[in-house]
Design a protein around this nucleic acid. Structure first.
Lengths: 150, 150
DNA sequence: CCCTTAAAGGACATGAGGGTCAATAAAATA
DNA sequence: TATTTTATTGACCCTCATGTCCTTTAAGGG
């Protein structure tokens, strides 16, 4: 049971790394080194963020990428949408293809509410929250999560 | 955002079809015809259910498959476990590999609770509930779901 | 203008999920 | 026993997510 893909996870980690950096701009290579994500693949992921306008980029000498907005203004949902292009529609909770809005399966309404709840979290959570997580992580801290036990 | 795989969905539909049938036993071919699932693939899926002891089978002339227990005694979770062999562990809500129980991401606790809620639904919901769904479907009925709006 | 540098982009590799097809094994019946 | 029937099994194919490698394009600095 997964919500965001591993690739979207990479995007989040990379952007959090960028947002947490003291310098405004970073090279993909630096981010890859810090996060441990494979550089060549991360470059492809970053490309999608550039296309979506989440980050801006500059080529060549002294090039790199930088956030197009404040971290508090970039939601996880937005990052996910940027990365997951041509996303297949959500399946029924039970995986049944015969389940539809008109003829709901026994878990249909429950699942609809749950999906909506998750979607709400994703639009509420911003890069700032992730940065706090990353900082805490480096400090060996186990500080409380911004959203609590939900 | 998917919970059960398409293949598990096939298993549920097939078992519901079997449970709803007036005859105790059905051939895979019949179930495939009624559900619209590809026969050759359904045979493989059914095989996993046989191995897991959810259904029994008989080969040759007048052979077929039949439920090993009452439909009210077969949970969706059990079907899922039977089908999903070697299932990879659940990812963090945010897809971050660096998230763990020791150093939780900002959505960790929330996601843990949500996962548990879904798991509970899956262990509560039985084949009987699905059969009711299928029967209502054939009748063009839009009857209420056994579990309500959750 | 030439060289270096870093993002952009294309070609290809790999593994899992979903799916097909043909061969094999057991069960009933003629 | 021979034939039919149906589950079982193995080999193969397609698509997609993930990932690597190599070339191309733009931007600065000498």
């Amino acid at each position: 049971m997964n919500v965001l893909s591993q690739t979207t996870g990479y995007a989040i980690e990379a952007l959090a790394c960028l947002a947490a950096s003291s310098s405004k701009s970073m090279m993909v290579r630096e981010i890859a080194a810090e996060t441990g994500i494979a550089q060549a693949y991360l470059a492809k992921v970053v490309q999608r963020l550039v296309v979506a306008g989440v980050v801006d980029s500059k080529r060549g000498y002294r090039g790199g990428i930088y956030l197009s907005r404040s971290p508090s203004d970039i939601t996880i949902k937005e990052i996910d949408d940027a990365v997951e292009i041509n996303r297949p529609p959500d399946r029924c909770l039970l995986g049944m293809t015969s389940c539809s809005e008109e003829r709901a399966c026994p878990a249909h309404d429950y699942w609809k509410e749950t999906r909506e709840s998750v979607r709400h979290r994703l639009t509420t959570l911003t890069l700032d929250d992730i940065v706090a997580f990353e900082i805490g992580r480096k400090a060996g801290d186990s500080g409380s999560s911004p959203l609590g036990a939900g």
